[in-house]
């Protein structure tokens, strides 16, 4: 089956990032000492994998360049995509993890705030959804802390 990429530009961007990543890995393998017991050593596997990734990225990239002209207009979807909400789903959890990682908030407090905030953003501050999400947040924050620490013996951030 042929590649039906959503966008050759996205393919090209990903390939560019992957080439950069591979170069970074090849550079990282230079610090690995040479093998002692076997003919391969620890550096060979990631190094050759990186070479293969570069070769594949170039092949996909060249193909994407040739397909830019022939790419047809995207079929209209029956629903509207929300890229901003997708961004929130990355940013808000990152802040949630950061607050616990830096020891600013306990799991319980951070979870309650996180669920309320993210639900509010996802529902675009719909009042009814926010009331329900506040209840969910309290139940999960308090109940979850109890369940996971007392029943499953998981040492959550305090």
């Amino acid at each position: 089956m042929p590649s039906q990429s959503r966008s050759p530009i996205l393919d090209l961007s990903i390939c560019g990032v992957l080439v950069g990543l591979s170069v970074f890995i090849i550079w990282g393998t230079k610090d690995i000492p040479p093998p002692f017991f076997d003919p391969v050593g620890s550096a060979a596997f990631p190094k050759y994998a990186a070479y293969i990734i570069i070769a594949l990225a170039l092949a996909i990239g060249v193909r994407a360049i040739f397909s830019i002209k022939t790419t047809h207009k995207e079929t209209k979807k029956p629903y509207k995509e929300e890229p901003l909400l997708a961004l929130y789903v990355v940013v808000v959890p990152s802040l949630y993890v950061l607050t616990m990682n830096l020891g600013w908030l306990s799991f319980r407090a951070a979870t309650i705030l996180f669920i309320i905030l993210l639900s509010a953003l996802l529902s675009k501050f719909d009042k009814r959804s926010m009331i329900v999400s506040a209840i969910v947040a309290l139940v999960f924050g308090i109940g979850g802390q109890y369940l996971f620490t007392e029943v499953f013996y998981i040492d959550l951030p305090q």
Binding site: I115, L122, S123
Partner: peptide, 13 residues
């Protein structure tokens, strides 16, 4: 709207 935050909290745990 409710599901996504709870699923991530489970992920964290």
């Amino acid at each position: 709207t409710y599901l996504i935050p709870v699923v991530f909290a489970f992920c964290l745990i």
